[in-house]
Design a protein around this nucleic acid. Structure first.
Length: 424
RNA sequence: GGAGAGAUGGCUGAGUGGUUGAAAGCGGCGGUCUUGAAAACCGUUGAGCUCGUAAGGGCUCCGGGGGUUCGAAUCCCUCUCUCUCCGCCA
């Protein structure tokens, strides 16, 4: 949610910023609705005040034994017009709130302007794509015939876009999870957290997967409105919903392993081969809750923490600053990490690190007590993958293959594989 | 799944229709005393919205939503959650 005060005071500024995303808002119409809201709110409050004052006088009159019938009749008439004004106000207010909930975050001034993902800006490159002296295979060719990776059985069990992992690959998958959690908790100072994988609508509204991106979610059948999490960002960030965090508790840094579930609506025919795009995948998510003045330093830090995973695995990657056309709904600024995949002969997204500033915090009513003012103020929230497990697994498989189709185990993972150096 | 009890401010807890945004205690903050600290004493201490240049007004909130009433923390309906007992269960 954008700052309502900013909407009121400088709507043109908001409109100009959103235009860079390709979002056009009707400034005149919005201003008119806002004007209405103000009028009705003031009128409602005036009538409420009158009712309160008169009702109190009835109490006083009654206590002194006077006849109160005329007084009561007067206030009764007042009640009707109050009710009507209240209803009008509620309607306008709800309309305004619903509209604002659909507006994305403003982008930071450092975000490159663009028209499509083509305009994302490369920030830095780490490592170089390996030159194989044979034709590298992709993860599907490397793993399916050995039955380490089994898409057919997954379809039988569920449907397309699921996978079954077996034996050494299942173990390698687990090793990656362990390695990442250890790295972030022991070396990067994160607190490990384990959270529900099923959440309510309020949580999804808080991190802004609702109301706008409902079609990307798996909803549970039943009387209650519940959803599978599309990312641990939802439950982890919502831990501070409706809280006032004391200043000395900040920054809060959580590392969370979880499965993620996405319907991938609108991606038919995209990445249908292999386990690049699945309905269910695993991820170690990083979340920061910080003071507003610290959030851009925190974004750099969080991104570096995600990069460290790739560096320790010796996987070549590049960092991209998403442009105004490609950046997510809640984000003010986003870096994507893209890992080199020899099987596709290109870089693919493996992590997305975003500063949402106070956008989610306002929706969640997540605040901290600013010692400078003594008042509760919105925190800033950040999130990033550190990293997506499935895609990291693919990257390891494809980058660490040899001519015989064996997969070598990266050094940092060997302790998690009982010292195993190669799987074949 | 069945039966019962409950949800009040940072916490404990009073309040069952009329100056109650809410007693009291604890905690927090400020002060007096003290070399310092503790104790004691005094003061202070919820959030959101809104009008106003300001000073200062006003509105809303006692788990959520709805209703009754001139007036609701207090009465009614409903939902959610918590606790106790029974059953089931990883």
């Amino acid at each position: 949610m954008l700052d309502p005060k900013l909407i009121r005071n400088d709507l043109q500024f908001v409109a100009d910023n959103l235009k860079k995303r390709g979002v056009i808002i009707d400034v005149a119409k919005l201003n008119a609705i806002e004007e209405q809201r103000k009028l009705l709110q003031v009128k409602t409050q005036e009538l409420q005040n009158e009712r309160n004052v008169r009702s109190k006088s009835i109490g006083a009159a009654k206590a002194s034994g006077k006849n109160v019938e005329d007084l009561m009749k007067e206030v009764n008439d007042l009640g009707a017009s109050l009710k009507e004004t209240e209803e009008q106000f509620n309607k306008v207010h709800a309309e305004l709130t619903a509209y604002l909930a659909l507006l994305p975050n403003l982008t930071h001034e450092s975000v490159p302007e663009g028209k499509s993902e083509e305009d994302n800006k490369q920030i830095r490159v780490w490592g170089e794509p390996i030159k194989f002296n044979f034709k590298p295979q992709d993860h599907v060719d490397l793993c399916v015939k050995k039955q380490w990776m089994d898409f057919e059985t997954a379809v039988k069990l569920s449907k397309s876009r699921f996978v079954v992992l077996r034996g050494p690959l299942a173990r390698l998958n687990r090793a990656l999870i362990q390695f990442m959690l250890d790295l972030h908790t022991i070396e990067h100072g994160y607190q490990e957290i384990n959270v529900p994988n099923i959440v309510n609508a309020a949580s999804l509204y808080g991190t802004s997967q609702l109301p706008k991106n409902k079609e990307d979610l798996f909803a549970l059948a039943g009387d209650e409105e519940l959803y599978l999490i599309p990312t641990a960002e939802v439950p982890v960030t919502n831990t501070v919903r409706d809280e006032i965090v004391e200043a000395d508790k900040l920054p809060i840094k959580y590392a969370c392993y979880s499965a993620c579930y996405r319907s991938e609506a609108g991606t038919y025919g995209k990445d249908t081969r292999g386990m690049i795009r699945q309905h269910q995948f695993e991820k170690v998510e990083l979340v920061h809750i910080v003071r507003p003045e610290d959030s851009y330093a925190a974004l750099e830090e969080l991104t570096l923490h995600a990069e460290t995973v790739l560096q320790k695995l010796k996987l070549p990657y590049r960092v991209m600053a998403l442009c105004t056309a490609d950046i997510g709904f809640a984000a003010a600024k986003t870096y994507d990490l893209e890992v080199w995949l020899p099987g596709q002969d290109r870089y693919r997204e493996i992590s997305s690190c975003s500063n949402t500033e106070a956008f989610q915090a306002r929706r969640m009513n997540a605040r901290w007590r600013n010692p400078a003012t003594g008042k509760p103020e919105s925190v800033h929230t950040l999130n990033g993958s550190g990293l997506a497990i499935g895609r990291t697994l693919i990257a390891v498989i494809e980058n660490y293959q040899d001519e015989q189709g064996r997969i070598h185990i990266p050094e940092v993972l060997q302790p998690y594989m009982k010292g195993l150096k190669v799987i074949e």
